[in-house]
Write a protein that binds this DNA or RNA. Structure first.
Lengths: 232, 232
DNA sequence: CAGTGGTCTAGACCACAAG
DNA sequence: TTGTGGTCTAGACCACTGG
């Protein structure tokens, strides 16, 4: 009936237009795939792809038999790119370097132990390092690695490549958790990053698993002023 | 040849298995869709869907004619859910409230003006509010709204619903930017959030546009301890 | 039970880019 | 030029779930 969307992108755009124009208001039931396909002059699978995409983006809510509704609260999904730091630095046009500050074996603090669900007394490999961009401190890394999951880690030369770069390439995780927060700089972080103790640091904390076994817990602290941005 | 993946999820799982097992190493060219479909015993479109999914997740890199390669650096994409604060609070099982602290019209500071690409001297609507969870400070909001894009905003009763809730439902944006950072609390934020000045606040800054017109710039500051988490 | 979305298929044409 | 992914189609069956 209407114009002539042919591609699934065109269908997506048309549906989005109707949502934004309040032609289809939040909560409304929209026509079924068959009906839409007929109206827009394309195959049902084309409509399906467009609607699936919009549902994944949070604009629509779909349920079998119940049909498709315009989402009441468009839950915005922001996708952040979490690259390896070396590339994060390179993509900003800076020269990357890193310095290994400490490396030891020991019992992790309670926080780390609980995040990794470890038995008390388990010893992990501990690595403290500083990432540099054009020679300036870029991020302060505090990492604990489970030697039972990653036995090769103990023998690694961490002066040539960072722990993260090696792990990402050699020990793919099957699941993980990422947490972002703000924390005041403790003395060691402040010294490494060249800021005042207590300064507001942007902190990224990541825990990764290989099936049921913990791989690593890492905390990356960025100096004041660091921003993580994304397009919506 | 191999087992019998029939669904696209099964194909996805099988390909992921081969990547993780280093059967297909980073940088390797993997078989084309036609070949894979034959090997796995399904239609090419099924393989296509699985590979598209894996490419979107950052595991594969696909280019016409060049074929599909295992990504050298699995760029991790973390998807954050950015809900309306009222629901964010409700989902934590707390009672939501908000308090309007200030509301005025004026020329925004340089930072806001540049983010919204405004002409100097343009006056915007300024709203300062506090979001509460079970009566405790949850987030401090500083917002500027363009009255030319959203004329109805000036007449709104912001004691009944928050600015964000109304904007999300009534002025859908077509594009926007999200930035996360850590900032020391200034006096006003500290007072509102009940923390010390200089405390490390987790800050979410968002700018939204309706086509080429700015809608709003908002800065949400969360008190120390706040964490934004996601599964990987 | 019946309607809706979810998926698979086989085949076709197209767009892009490597050689 | 030509191989590869990107997409569309028409039809079919299935799975879930509302009524």
């Amino acid at each position: 009936m209407a114009g002539a969307p042919r591609s699934w992108q065109a269908v997506e755009a048309e549906v989005l237009r109707r949502i934004r124009s309040r032609d289809w208001a939040p909560g409304d039931l929209i026509p079924g795939e068959v009906e839409l396909a007929a109206e827009l002059g394309c195959a049902r699978s084309t409509v399906n792809r467009a609607l699936r995409q919009l549902a994944a983006a949070g604009y629509l809510e779909r349920r079998r038999k119940a049909g498709t509704r315009v989402a009441l609260n468009p839950v915005r999904m922001a996708t952040l790119r979490i690259p390896v730091i070396a590339e994060e630095v390179a993509s900003r046009g800076a020269r990357y370097d890193h310095a290994l500050l400490r490396r030891e074996t020991g019992v992790p603090p309670l926080l780390v132990r609980s995040r990794l669900r470890l038995d008390p007394g388990r010893k992990l490999l501990h690595v403290v390092a500083l990432h540099l961009a054009d020679g300036a401190p870029y991020a302060f890394e505090d990492r604990w690695v489970d030697p039972e999951t990653v036995p090769e880690f103990a023998a690694l030369d961490l002066t040539r490549q960072s722990a993260n770069a090696w792990l990402v390439r050699n020990v793919p995780y099957t699941s993980g958790t990422l947490a972002l927060s703000a924390e005041p700089a403790d003395r060691e972080s402040a010294e490494a990053l060249g800021c005042d103790p207590g300064a507001a640091l942007f902190v990224l904390e990541r825990t990764t698993w290989k099936e049921a076994r913990p791989i690593t817990w890492v905390r990356l602290a960025y100096p004041p002023g660091h921003r993580l941005t994304t397009e919506l």
